[in-house]
Amino acid sequence: MSGAVWSYSENESVSNEVASAAADVAKGASAEPVVLEIGAVRAGVRAPGAKLLLKGPATSDVPPEVAAEAIAKASKQLQPAAILIGATRYGREIASRLAVKLTVGCLSEVSKLSADGNALAGERNAFAGKVVAKVSCALPAIATVKVGYYAAVESAGTAVTESDVGQVNPLVKVVSREKKAAGAVDLRSAKVIVSAGRGVKKKEDLPMLEELAREMHGALGCSRPLSSDLGWLPEEHHIGLTGVTVKPDLYLALGISGQLQHTAGMKDSKVVAAVNTDKDAPIFQASDYGIVGDLYQIVPAIRKALASRR
């Protein structure tokens, strides 16, 4: 086993988070954190130490099947102590395939990672966020790292070394890829998040909340039904167990009932405020400030109150 902790994500900003996790683990394992690149080095990808470029795939836009095979080949040669992968929809596939290819255990959806003796240890939610579990796996081990927990690594990184992994021929062929509506958000770094739930009656009402978010210098997030079932916002806006984890200074939940699967993704916010017509909505249990009321009346009133202070 070499003294290296590898990190990888196909998503540049997630890669920078996972690199922070790798730096933490490396410290405990007296190892080096190494950021993986596949196909080509990406300008937005930073590293606490060195980068390792896996050459073979034609570009850096690699499907999970190819990424897993490339990392597995390199891993068999170089034997890292641990491999951390961002828990995105691609990333979960990459890590799972790697676990099978390398026959090693895989922690899932973890944060607070460390190297604990000869094991990789971390914390994760279970049972819709009712429970926090400490999990561990003997090294060498793999983990999928919960998105939104770690601050992005700052340093640009040092040397790039290369490893040739050759061509990979995937079974799954990508026919097309289409961006979902609305621009990119960075909920993970937002100080204020205004979050929309099913209490919002139609898509056309979202701009009102977007305006409010802008006036609060924040970003718009949502509950899963708005992105998944209704498709009003891209999936990256959705907060919770199956979406992103956020911990802003202020989380303002508008028309969100506050089911466990949702609050699992925002419970570490500094201050939580909620507006809901139902006084018994569970979101009030997870809030510092609550208003029982109609968001269609309260939102304009908040905007007015903000404007009068300028």
């Binding site: 090693v104 255990g105 895989c106 240890a121 429970v131 926090v132 999990v135 081990a141």
Partner: peptide, 14 residues
């Protein structure tokens, strides 16, 4: 191989 395992569990505090 050596399986991933749960070390401890506790209720979420809020």
């Amino acid at each position: 191989y050596r399986q991933a395992s749960v070390v401890s569990m506790s209720a979420q505090q809020s």
